[in-house]
């Protein structure tokens, strides 16, 4: 029984890590800052939840499980606040989102804005 649980836990960890890697791929691929936040939140929610749930299954019932739950609660409480602070700081300092039709707009905008000039 314990063996089955630890294999299932390991599988969940692998799925969670795969989601984290996918989130990282999204952060590299997506065209502007605001869309990259969405990709990063995949790691913060799906990836973290599955990895910690898998570790919970491996640990069984103990104080360790409780600590894993604490880590999960912290991550779930702090990441939306951090993402909101980031998005709000970017938006209120005039970092414009590139809404829609990326493929066309993106190349011209790259030429217009040199690197690092969109700071507040």
């Amino acid at each position: 029984m314990g063996d089955v649980l630890s294999w299932a836990g390991g599988g969940l960890v692998i799925v969670g890590v795969a989601l984290s890697v996918l989130g990282a791929v999204g952060v590299l691929r997506f065209p502007d800052f605001y869309t990259r936040i969405h990709a990063a939140s995949i790691t913060d929610t799906g990836g973290a939840s599955l990895v910690l749930l898998g570790l919970c299954l491996i640990a069984g019932l103990s104080l360790v499980t409780l600590k894993l739950v604490f880590v999960w609660v912290f991550v779930m409480l702090t990441t939306p606040v951090a993402a909101n602070a980031l998005a709000n700081a970017a938006f209120s300092s005039g970092h414009k989102p590139r809404i829609g039709a990326f493929q066309i707009v993106r190349t011209d905008e790259r030429r217009k804005t040199p690197r690092g000039t969109d700071q507040p």
Binding site: T45, N84, F91
Partner: peptide
């Protein structure tokens, strides 16, 4: 925070009961 926590939507600005949400 629920909107931000859900992937694909991020709350960008809150002013009173008006929220500005960026959606994918």
């Amino acid at each position: 925070n629920s909107i931000t926590l859900t992937p694909g939507t991020v709350t960008v600005d809150v002013d009173g009961d008006k929220l500005k949400v960026h959606a994918l």
